[in-house]
Computed example of a mutant assay.
Amino acid sequence: MAEDDDDLRRAVDASLRGAGFAVDTAADLPEADEALSVNGYDCTVFDRMLPAGDALRYVAHRRRAGWDTPVLFLTGRNAAEERVRGLDWADDYLGKPFAVAELVLRVRSLCRRGGLDTSSSLRQGGIVLDPGRYEARRDGRPLALTAKEFAVLERLIRAQGEPVRRAELIAAAWDEVMPPVSNVLDVLVAQLRRKLGGPAVLHTVRGVGYLLR
């Protein structure tokens, strides 16, 4: 949640946590952008007018880049034309003043719409994998992975930042025995890096294999 009013931010944070949500808060857009760059979220809540500018422009920019995490604008800009502008890019729009119970219900609905199955999902930073559904996202953006790319990424996430040997990654993705000199894993890792995009999180550990950090 991005909100520059300290009292309101703390109150909403407490209410959402009391309803069972895990919540990160930010007082301005740069802080929110930093959190979104390293974490995956099922829903985001933005005040429209923040010190760094109108969050609508920020959300529109990220939407054009393919970001699809559900967004709710929680704002005092309640005029009909403002709501229409907001809903061009956001999934929901709630004016201030508001009822906390209504906010909780709307956030819960957006989380169900946008989130993976958190009971079975794996997370590291902004990457979320749901092995049961073969679904993957980074920072809310769906990743179109092949079965082998998914298997390698899953093995790396399960290592929790520790290096994984090449032989283990090959065993995770290929049933057949491959010659040790084969570069098929290197090709797959290059493709996976491209799909994950920046900033880089998939690193080579010389003489060992790869790690995700």
Rank of each mutant, 00 (worst) to 15 (best):
R106C: 11
R106T: 00
V107G: 06
V107E: 08
V107C: 02
V107M: 05
R108Y: 05
R108C: 01
R108S: 13
R108M: 01
S109P: 01
S109K: 14
L110C: 04
L110I: 03
L110N: 04
C111G: 07
C111A: 14
C111F: 02
R112Q: 14
R112S: 14
R112P: 03
R113T: 12
R113Y: 15
R113P: 06
R113K: 15
G114F: 09
G114C: 10
L116H: 13
L116W: 10
L116M: 14
L116G: 14
D117P: 11
D117H: 13
D117C: 09
T118F: 11
T118D: 15
T118K: 13
T118V: 12
T118I: 12
S119H: 12
S119F: 05
S119M: 12
S120R: 14
S121L: 13
S121Q: 15
S121D: 13
S121T: 12
L122W: 07
R123A: 01
R123G: 00
G125H: 06
G125Y: 05
I127M: 10
I127A: 04
V128L: 12
V128I: 07
V128M: 10
L129S: 04
L129G: 04
L129P: 10
L129M: 08
P131S: 08
P131K: 03
P131E: 07
P131Y: 03
G132F: 02
G132D: 14
G132A: 13
R133I: 06
R133P: 07
R133S: 14
R133K: 15
R133F: 11
Y134F: 15
Y134R: 14
E135C: 03
E135P: 04
A136Y: 03
A136R: 02
R137K: 10
R137H: 08
R138G: 14
R138F: 11
D139C: 11
G140M: 06
R141G: 00
R141D: 00
P142F: 02
P142R: 06
L143R: 09
L143W: 12
L143F: 10
L143K: 04
A144P: 00
A144G: 09
L145R: 05
T146A: 09
T146S: 15
T146N: 02
A147T: 09
A147W: 06
A147S: 12
A147M: 07
K148E: 15
K148V: 11
K148H: 11
E149I: 00
E149Y: 08
F150K: 09
F150C: 09
V152N: 08
V152Q: 04
L153N: 00
L153V: 00
L153K: 00
L153P: 01
E154M: 06
E154L: 02
E154P: 01
